[in-house]
């Protein structure tokens, strides 16, 4: 019944040899000659999203180009289930020589805070950060509100009457509603959903005044002029959507930090860390990868290991604080 993109199963992304259709499936991860070789010859990127999900797509784009940069072969492995808990165990108990790396989003942080997975944040560390996923405020085309500022002014004039859509209750989008309420001193009703698609219907059919979500999920609606973006929770305007003003420009100083990065087990090989720190800046300059970043409306937010660790510590603390303040968990 859930329409969420959380999917059912883990699968090895590598094509079992006997089933590949000859000539149609190409291997894309052979390293080029003459590049530095990573501490280990083969790297597996673990994602907790299933094939086709956010982290999975990102991993597959990365392994198109990273092998040439790092001089290794690479594969993506989906270790889904238990909201990232299983992937965390896999990383925490796996080798630390550089051969297993976890593609992260805030999901596993929230899972670690909200339940007691066998292996939690104390067993992991951020390796580097790569992107932020900007969050947009969106309305249907018929909406009278042309900007987020207008939307908020209307909300102030009618306290408690506006309904703002967000996805899962534990998702960052839901927290953004609370943050906007606090920052703009308005009172709106947050309506949670089982996923982005679910929310989209209710924005489109007018059950909600607006919704918060990601560009990728609504691109089709934007092109068809059924939906408008009226603000983005980002420090600057996003290259993919230059006409959409930031929330900060519109007087609400809130930035969403939905990060996409890499994490590893503690005691991860220092040589491997250095190699990743060198490789990611090269990766985001590869033209084909750059195109993908723009198309996906991602924002470059590369952070080296120490910086990423500090960022993660801040992020974890703020999540803990939020969950405790809202009474979602008493732990931590």
């Amino acid at each position: 019944m859930t329409i969420s993109r959380r999917r059912a199963l883990s699968t090895l992304a590598l094509v079992p040899a006997g089933l590949a259709m000859p000539g149609i499936v190409r291997a894309q991860n052979a390293p080029a000659a003459g590049v530095p070789r990573y501490p280990v010859p083969h790297v597996t990127l673990i994602t907790h999203s299933s094939p086709g999900g956010g982290g999975d797509v990102m991993g597959r784009e990365m392994i198109k180009h990273l092998p040439q940069i790092m001089g290794v072969t690479m594969a993506v492995e989906n270790v889904s289930g238990a909201a990232g808990a299983r992937a965390m165990t896999r990383i925490a108990t796996g080798p630390t020589d550089g051969s297993v790396v976890y593609i992260t989003t805030p999901t596993h942080v929230n899972t670690a805070i909200m339940s007691r997975p066998p292996h939690g944040l104390e067993h992991l560390q951020a390796l580097v950060n790569i992107f932020f996923d900007p969050q947009y405020l969106m309305v249907r085309n018929e909406s009278p509100h042309k900007t987020a500022a207008e939307m908020i002014a209307a909300a102030r004039a009618n306290p408690g009457r506006q309904r703002w859509g967000a996805t899962l209750p534990s998702a960052l989008e839901r927290q953004l509603v609370e943050q906007v309420k606090r920052a703009a001193s308005i009172n709106v009703t947050a309506v949670t959903h089982d996923g982005g698609g679910d929310m989209l219907i209710n924005v489109l059919n007018g059950s909600l005044e607006c919704g918060i979500g990601e560009l990728q999920e609504v691109l089709g609606q934007i092109e068809a002029r059924r939906l408008r973006l009226i603000g983005v929770f980002a420090p600057q305007r996003v290259p993919a959507t230059p006409d959409v003003p930031t929330m900060r420009e519109q007087g609400v100083n809130i930035v969403a930090e939905k990060f996409r990065g890499l994490a590893t087990a503690r005691n991860f090989s220092p040589a491997a860390i250095a190699a990743w720190e060198a490789a990611i800046p090269k990766l985001v300059e590869v033209p084909a990868f750059k195109d993908w970043i723009t198309k996906s409306a991602l924002v470059n937010a590369f952070m080296k290991h120490e910086e990423a660790k500090a960022f993660e510590a801040r992020f974890v603390a703020s999540q803990r604080e939020f969950f405790r303040e809202m009474g979602i968990t008493t732990r931590g």
Binding site: I3, R5, L200
Partner: peptide, 10 residues
């Protein structure tokens, strides 16, 4: 719509 109605269509 780009709205999946089930896990399969997602």
């Amino acid at each position: 719509f780009g709205i999946p109605g089930s896990n399969s269509t997602a």
